[in-house]
Design a protein around this nucleic acid. Structure first.
Lengths: 355, 355
DNA sequence: CTGAAAGCGCTTACAG
DNA sequence: CTGAAAGCGCTTACAG
């Protein structure tokens, strides 16, 4: 019995001991939990506890291997120092441009004492709970939003950053100038002397993303500005079909702008199969300056989307928003929109049209 | 004064009211918090509370818009239902193969009621705290581990899944058979009739990853098995230099295996610049079957790394480990290793050597 | 079947 | 400068 008892105690003790609490530290120095808490948390200068005491506490904490429980602290302070990253797809069509954005966002947050937790909107309930059950101090929604979570966010008081998506939800918005990007790349081709420039639509459901409309609008405006408004043409065929058609067409396009960089690469492959050379026979340009676009045959002219800056802005602003919540003078000045510029990266896939 | 007072009260009230607690629900139905808690959480069947009471509680909860506080529950149950994803780089050298892995991992966890929080090891303290301060129930370390966090994990009792990295840390390991992959792709080239097959090393610090050694070993073994052990050759030059050298060499390699898929693509570009055709003049093969490898000119033969399966396995097993912690019979049977096979995807960048 | 109470591990006015 | 106590919002033996 005694042995059993001791074993039980040992086990219980070990379980409890595995994590000394603030009470243990307090007991160890003959102080109260409150004092220990202050000594541990308030910056040395304006700390109300005597220096000697402070040091005693520090030492005890170190000796016991004390680490404050994040959970207990979060509950007491009603703050998780966590933000949720809400995403609807990001899934199969591995987009590529968000990888960097997310890593930068996470780094930006971590630098400020926050962490990022991934929340797929595929299971809509999850996301709602996440946001509502005081599990996150704020959230960022990326690329696409679902009606369900949109309603939740409209209701909740959670600070939110909306990245690269369109919505009438209030909140911080981080956008890019896709219209400008579309115009820029079109003007580049026109400047090289092209007249028959087409815009190749994505075949996947990327079509749904609002950047598509903006890029097309930019393209159309540039065409109009050049007096070629009537010739603007959106192509919806798959790249293979488009390449085949182009190969046998007399009046073929001399320049093509592809919405998706993966499809631009696929297009160059398809053109190659038909014996068409880029850029001698036809110029190709696209969006999203991901690393591989520099390595293709030939290197692609692309419009770069400032993913780092997007991640960085979303991170900074959201934290400001979370921490500055008290300054709210009852007016919703929290609804700020940032539009970041895109830049044209000219490489070898674009050149003057064939004579 | 009265007005002020009311205003203050309203504000305080609103802040409190913004989130009804279990006590509010209890009060609302004239029950105790304990009963409400049981009614809300215990599955209908073996729930000790009377059906009528149960329904009353449910209704009240719905009426008041009650949602349990994740924090309070986590503290009471000592469980966060969160796992940390620890990564050292993943940063600038956008690897590409981890994007899918992470998304799958997150989905797999979310499916089981867990969430994934991103933790960069760049700031080593952060990670340590994360793991130790009962903020996560477990963690997965991916690709590379730092000495700091390795020590922490050795000390801590946190279940851990180690994905695609080498360490003598105990814990669940999810690995891939890079040796087999290296051998497989080499045998493929040898089978096509190649004799002068070289292995092109990465120039970046990817070299540090242990998969490099394994892939090289697989390559060397296949060469030896074919009686070509003396001819195995590791090339350390940048792709541009290698392409230039190859172009002017009489006895050039007819097949090249490139460690990194991005460099394989770059190599094909460099060869193209020198007028060498793939695969007619030289065959190129690589690793990591990311989407773009199918779209290059020509499409790349690659060894596919089962990223989905890796993410899935890591997620499942880790959760099992977390939830089965009690079954521990004091023996460390938790140290399980899973080695997933790689598969060869043959495309058009490999063909018999020139006659 | 229901309730009262202690506990999870901190923080924070409020006294002294 | 320090302590006692209430509070953060739940859960969980233990009684009744």
């Amino acid at each position: 019995m005694d042995v059993e008892g001791i074993a039980m105690t040992r086990r219980a003790t070990r379980q409890k001991n595995s994590r000394p609490t603030i009470a243990d530290v307090a007991r160890h120095c003959g102080l109260s939990k409150g004092t220990v808490s202050k000594a541990l948390n308030i910056p040395a200068e304006q700390c109300p506890v005597r220096e000697a005491t402070r040091e005693r506490v520090m030492q005890a904490a170190k000796d016991l291997g004390y680490r404050p429980s994040w959970l207990a602290r979060a509950l007491a302070k009603q703050k998780t120092h966590t933000v949720g990253l809400l995403y609807a797809r990001l899934m199969p069509p591995v987009v590529g441009i968000y990888e960097r954005l997310i890593v930068i966002l996470a780094a930006s947050l971590q630098h400020r004492g926050y962490h990022l937790v991934l929340v797929s909107l595929a299971d809509s309930d999850e996301a709602g709970q996440m946001v509502l059950d005081q599990r996150v101090d704020g959230c960022v929604v990326i690329e696409e939003i679902t009606p369900g979570i949109e309603a939740v966010l409209r209701e909740a008081e959670v600070p939110v950053a909306l990245v690269n998506l369109q919505t009438d939800l209030p909140g911080l918005k981080v956008l890019v100038d896709d219209h400008g990007g579309g115009r820029m790349v079109t003007e580049h081709l026109l400047g090289l002397g092209h007249r028959r420039v087409v815009f190749l639509d994505p075949t996947e459901k990327e079509l749904a993303h609002f950047s598509h409309g903006q890029r097309v609008a930019g393209y159309e405006q540039a065409m109009r500005d050049a007096g070629l408004g009537g010739q603007a043409r959106l192509v919806k065929s798959p790249v293979a079909a488009f390449a085949a058609e182009t190969a046998r067409s007399a009046e073929r396009a001399t320049g093509v702008i592809v919405y998706s960089h993966l499809e631009a690469i696929a297009l160059m492959q398809a053109l190659w199969r038909h014996g068409l050379r880029v850029p001698q026979d036809i110029s190709v340009a696209t969006f999203n300056d991901v690393p591989v676009t520099e390595l293709t045959i030939p290197p692609l002219t692309t419009v770069a989307v400032p993913t780092r800056e997007m991640g960085h802005q979303a991170g900074c602003r959201l934290v400001e928003e979370i921490e500055g919540r008290h300054e709210d003078e009852d007016d919703g000045e929290a609804s700020q929109t940032i539009v970041l510029p895109e830049t044209l990266v000219v490489r070898e896939s674009t050149a003057p049209p064939p004579a």
